[in-house]
Amino acid sequence: MTAKVSLRGLYKIFGPNDAAMVDHVKTGMGKATLLEKHRHVLGLRDINVDMQPGEITVIMGLSGSGKSTLIRHLNRLIDPSAGEILVDGQDVMKLGQSALRDLRQKQMSMVFQKFALLPHKTVLENAQLPLSVQGADKATCDREGRKWLARVGLEGFEDRYPAQLSGGMQQRVGIARALTANTDIMLMDEAFSALDPLIRTDMQNLLLELQKELHKTIVFITHDLDEALKLADHLVILKDGAVVQQGEPQSILLAPSDPYIEDFVSDINRARVLRVRSVMGPINGDHFDGEVDASRNLEDMIALTGGDTNLCYRVTDGGEVVGQLDMKDLVKALVPRVSADVPPA
């Protein structure tokens, strides 16, 4: 599988003389030293990430970790100090002004944390924006705009103004606007962070539902690990502008490579996030108390067994037997690994 978007050795340093500072950073100068000695701020350091087509890549980090800077490199709202950004194998850095505009219109759309809707336009006009910018005729704009607004659950709100809608509804307009662009790639910059928790869950479900049907390449930025684990096919964890760990979210959860990530994952409700697939072992017995699907989460399993740890299940995935689940392993997996005492299940 070739990556839809690849970042290769991406560096970003903020300051008047950033290109010259890249060498200092490459030879190991830290953020603090760079700021103190050269008055330049280190934004991103040696980022290498592949984003697969049809997957949700979540980039997670605390504020100041460079995640918003990173996502703005993909459509070059921010230019890197060094490195390559490949979209479908094409280096975005080599695009001229009009080719870059073309890329932004037709290949990438973006959803913003603060919605960034046009306050003087109606909901429908906002949703149509990407098409009308490209010069599509009014009928097409209208049809597509209405279609996607309906798809995100905003039928009947077309003629309202953004200020008349709640935050959650405004962000639905933001998503409809990005969908109307009909791009393969969707960039979501903390898209749900400004919403309250219940609405946020709704929006996450909406996104997953849309993704099931549309198979877009989504790059999602968040500072919330629960959200990251719920959405991610591929999780990238960023700290101080560098990638500390990336991979399949379950494996990061079970095998954090860094005390920073351990801290992160220790607070998570593991039973809800971890799935049978991640904690099962190879078949080595012949007595099973039943069959379970590999995609069930551990919370489900505990409810199923009523807390009995002596049981053992055969695990199936699409009708095929893939392993066995000993409930004792399950319980062990629920305890976060603290500084390498218990090996991962």
Binding site: L77, S109, F112, K114, A116, L117
Partner: peptide, 29 residues
């Protein structure tokens, strides 16, 4: 004019003229 809105205009590939007539002037009105 709100910088977030201008950033969105950039992200959706508006030309300089489109940014002026569709975003900046109406919001500055």
């Amino acid at each position: 004019v709100d910088r977030d809105v201008m950033e969105a205009a950039d992200a959706f590939g508006l030309t300089a003229w489109q940014k002026l007539t569709r975003v900046q002037l109406p919001l500055a009105l």
